[in-house]
C-alpha cells in the first residue's frame, strides 16, 4: 500500500509517521514508485502506538523494546527452523 493508504489503515497522522520513519521504527520498502508499506508495517505501527499510549513507554523505551523484540522474534524463528531440521532425528 502507498503512504496515503498506510496512514488510513494505521490511523496515524502524517507528522507522526515522518517521525517514526526518521527513528527507523518503521522501514517500508523503497520501490521505483516511492515507498510501499505492507501488513507487517501496519501491525508494527499499532504496536508502537500501544507502547507509547497505553503502556506509557517513552521514545527511548520504545527503541529498546523494539530492538529486543525483533531479536526475540528472530530467535523464535531460528528455534522453529531448528525444530524442523532435527525432526525425526534421535540423539
Amino acid at each position: 500500500m502507498n503512504k496515503k493508504e498506510f496512514l488510513k489503515s494505521s490511523e496515524l497522522r502524517v507528522q507522526t509517521l515522518e517521525l517514526w520513519l526518521e527513528q527507523q521504527w518503521l522501514i517500508p520498502e523503497q520501490t521505483s514508485r516511492g515507498i510501499r508499506f505492507t501488513d507487517i508495517d501496519v501491525a508494527r505501527a499499532r504496536l508502537i502506538h500501544e507502547l507509547k499510549n497505553d503502556f506509557g513507554a517513552n521514545d527511548e523505551g520504545v527503541d529498546v523494546i523494539l530492538h529486543l523484540m525483533d531479536q526475540l522474534h528472530e530467535l523464535r524463528r531460528a528455534l522453529a527452523q531448528l525444530r524442523e531440521d532435527i525432526k525425526g532425528r534421535s540423539f
Binding site: P28, D39, I40, R46, D70, R76, R77
Partner: peptide
C-alpha cells in the same frame, strides 16, 4: 479483530525488521 505484530514477525518470510544480532 486484528493481527498482532508477532503474527508477521515470527512467520517465515524475510522482513526488514529481522534482527539476528541475538545469536
Amino acid at each position: 479483530q486484528h493481527n498482532f505484530y508477532r503474527d508477521y514477525a515470527s512467520s517465515d518470510q524475510g522482513h526488514p525488521y529481522a534482527d539476528t544480532s541475538g545469536f
